[in-house]
Amino acid sequence: MNLLNIVSKNDYLSNAANLLGRVGLSVIFILAGMNKIQYFEGNAQYLASGGLPEFLLPLVIAFELIGGLFILAGALTQLTALAFAGFCVVSALVYHNNLADQMQFFMFFKNIAMAGGFLALASTGAGRFSVDHKLAKSA
């Protein structure tokens, strides 16, 4: 067995890992979108604290919820993953740029790590267990 390709050379493991990765990447945004609805006023103020207008909050919520569900389902995965990678980097730069604060330091690099995960997902696509796969198969 070649340990260097233990997942990529096994079709089932590769597709299962892709699905689990999509679950992990999507759930934080689905939950964040739901949180923003539940605590709308506080989140609007937080958005404004970064210099962005509060009226953008419904768009952020829609992006997090719909985009998160797209990633979870594996629908339009490559485009959605690229959008999320950009979103993660921008939010890191705007909201977590005080690297002297330990919590902000970790939040900044959490966002950068998620951007890396989304770029990896964009490069591989959603895999077999996805809407994208079903659509490509029927085309």
Results as ranks from 00 to 15, higher is better:
1 M>C: 13
1 M>E: 07
3 L>Y: 11
3 L>N: 13
4 L>I: 04
4 L>M: 12
4 L>P: 00
7 V>A: 11
8 S>V: 12
9 K>M: 13
9 K>E: 15
10 N>T: 05
10 N>V: 10
11 D>I: 07
11 D>Q: 11
11 D>V: 08
12 Y>D: 10
12 Y>F: 13
13 L>C: 05
13 L>E: 00
13 L>Y: 04
14 S>R: 09
14 S>G: 01
15 N>T: 05
16 A>T: 14
17 A>S: 14
17 A>R: 00
20 L>F: 15
20 L>H: 03
21 G>Y: 04
21 G>P: 08
22 R>E: 12
23 V>C: 12
23 V>G: 02
26 S>K: 02
26 S>A: 08
27 V>F: 07
27 V>I: 15
28 I>M: 15
29 F>V: 01
30 I>P: 12
30 I>D: 09
30 I>C: 10
31 L>K: 12
34 M>I: 14
35 N>Y: 11
37 I>G: 09
38 Q>S: 10
39 Y>S: 11
40 F>T: 10
41 E>M: 07
42 G>R: 00
43 N>M: 02
43 N>P: 00
44 A>D: 01
44 A>L: 04
47 L>T: 05
48 A>L: 02
49 S>M: 14
50 G>I: 00
54 E>C: 00
54 E>A: 15
55 F>Y: 13
55 F>C: 06
55 F>L: 11
60 V>N: 01
60 V>H: 10
61 I>V: 11
61 I>D: 06
62 A>R: 06
63 F>N: 04
64 E>V: 05
66 I>F: 14
67 G>M: 08
67 G>N: 03
71 I>H: 09
72 L>K: 07
73 A>D: 04
73 A>V: 00
74 G>W: 01
74 G>C: 03
76 L>T: 10
77 T>D: 02
78 Q>H: 05
81 A>R: 04
82 L>F: 09
83 A>Y: 02
84 F>H: 03
85 A>E: 01
85 A>C: 06
85 A>L: 02
86 G>E: 11
86 G>W: 06
86 G>I: 15
87 F>G: 03
87 F>D: 04
87 F>P: 08
88 C>Y: 01
88 C>M: 14
89 V>K: 09
90 V>S: 05
92 A>C: 09
92 A>N: 07
92 A>E: 03
94 V>L: 09
94 V>C: 10
95 Y>F: 15
95 Y>M: 00
96 H>L: 11
96 H>I: 04
97 N>A: 10
98 N>Y: 00
99 L>T: 14
101 D>G: 06
104 Q>D: 12
104 Q>F: 00
105 F>N: 12
106 F>M: 13
107 M>D: 12
107 M>N: 15
107 M>R: 10
107 M>T: 13
108 F>R: 00
109 F>I: 04
111 N>S: 08
111 N>F: 06
112 I>K: 01
113 A>Q: 07
113 A>V: 13
113 A>K: 04
114 M>P: 02
115 A>N: 05
116 G>Y: 06
116 G>V: 02
117 G>W: 08
117 G>Y: 05
117 G>H: 10
117 G>F: 05
118 F>H: 03
118 F>T: 06
118 F>I: 03
119 L>E: 03
121 L>A: 12
121 L>Q: 09
123 S>F: 14
123 S>L: 14
123 S>E: 10
124 T>S: 10
126 A>E: 06
128 R>G: 10
130 S>I: 08
130 S>M: 13
132 D>W: 07
134 K>A: 14
134 K>W: 09
137 K>F: 14
138 S>E: 13
138 S>N: 11
138 S>H: 11
139 A>G: 15
